[in-house]
């Protein structure tokens, strides 16, 4: 039943770009905005997998999202080629401007799409592995882990702001031209990116559900509710926490990689701590530990945000705060809890 509902919603969403392509009343704006929400939903899902199941509350998941976005951004920059304003055959505009003579080594390979996509997975994954290993091994949990991840995204933001990082400084990357031979600013490219995001979301949801329903899902619940007890049952919980944290960071990386070509820009503000906090609010709002709830939360909060920022831009943040307080007080299990109670 639940599977049918999800499939139905996914098919309905898939219709949006099709209607746009055939000129049947769906505007470009709607396709781009909903495409963005799909990426946010993947991010929310990734947070829920770590937080809702294993109890690892990361307040820095935006960093993994941004890193995935930067990997895609680097690929898109390389594809601009000689079409930049300085017309340099290889170097992106910002490098010419800063007087670079040749491409820095860490840009090598990014002209290849498969390589860039691999990096969008591996860089967030490797960072999560490193941070996770150090933190979990020293038994850093709860609030301390949350603060640590928040500090991580903040530090990365400051680093990416620097021009000498060779990653575009505070302007980041923009003016993208094409992806996989397709000009980006066309309805077809928008539709394909939308469908790719929808497919990625469905894939991540399937993956997450498969974990949640397996014994691993129950081990993760055990980690959340009684990690010490689980260790006496013979589970080396470090492994399970690392596994879910790295997987979750990779999902966030995919989300970021799909997000960047749709919004046409990536810059260090994507690392700002507020972004990560907001994503956690989506999960709490939708209902943590349910996966579907995280997706629902990402959609509803962002729909609310898009609507409110156009009708009442000044009060949007207050409404978000009020909604969060109301949900934590009145709906401890989030929107999904409300829906399930009704049934």
């Amino acid at each position: 039943m639940r599977r049918l509902i999800i499939l139905g919603i996914a098919l309905l969403l898939a219709l949006l770009p099709a209607l746009n392509l055939t000129g049947l009343g769906i505007s470009d704006f709607v396709v781009t905005v909903v495409g963005k929400w799909l990426c946010y939903a993947i991010l929310a899902l990734s947070i829920d997998l770590a937080w809702g199941y294993a109890g690892i509350l990361s307040l820095g998941h935006g960093a993994f999202f941004a890193l995935g976005g930067y990997a895609m951004g680097m690929h898109l920059m390389r594809l601009i080629g000689p079409r930049g304003s300085y017309g340099h055959p290889v170097l992106p505009d910002f490098m010419v401007f800063l007087g670079y003579q040749e491409l820095p080594w860490f840009w090598w390979g990014f002209q290849s799409f498969p390589f860039a996509m691999l990096m969008a997975l591996l860089i967030p994954g490797a960072l999560a592995f490193l941070v996770g290993y150090l933190a979990f091994r020293s038994r850093i949990t709860g609030v301390y882990l949350s603060i640590l991840t928040q500090a991580l995204t903040y530090a990365l933001m400051l680093a990416f702001f620097r021009n000498d990082m060779g990653l575009g400084g505070n302007n980041g990357f923009t003016d993208f031209k094409e992806l996989l031979g397709l000009p980006l600013n066309t309805p077809l490219a928008r539709a394909l990116l939308f469908w790719a995001s929808l497919a990625a979301l469905c894939g991540c949801l399937w993956l997450g559900t498969s974990i949640a329903r397996s014994k691993l899902g129950r081990v993760l619940v055990g980690v959340r509710d009684g990690e010490a007890r689980l260790r006496f049952l013979g589970y080396d919980t470090l492994q399970h926490k690392l596994f879910v944290f790295v997987l979750s960071a990779m999902m966030a990386g995919i989300a970021g990689a799909l997000y960047v070509p749709q919004v046409g820009i990536i810059n260090p503000s994507e690392f700002s701590p507020g972004n990560s906090l907001e994503a956690v609010v989506w999960v709490a709002f939708g209902g943590r530990g349910t996966l579907v709830g995280a997706v629902l939360g990402a959609f509803t909060v962002n729909a609310l945000k898009t609507w409110l920022t156009s009708v009442a831009p000044d009060v949007w943040l207050f409404v978000l705060g009020a909604v969060f307080v109301a949900v934590t007080l009145l709906l401890p299990r989030g929107l999904i809890g409300l829906l399930e109670k009704r049934r």
Binding site: S214, K215, L216, R218, G222, D225, R229, L233, D236
Partner: peptide, 24 residues
Amino acid sequence: FDALTVFENLELALKAVRGPIACW
């Protein structure tokens, strides 16, 4: 583990695989 059923508690303790991927 209060959030798991009695059966699932026993299943967690059951002498069987312990690693994350094996458990999946």
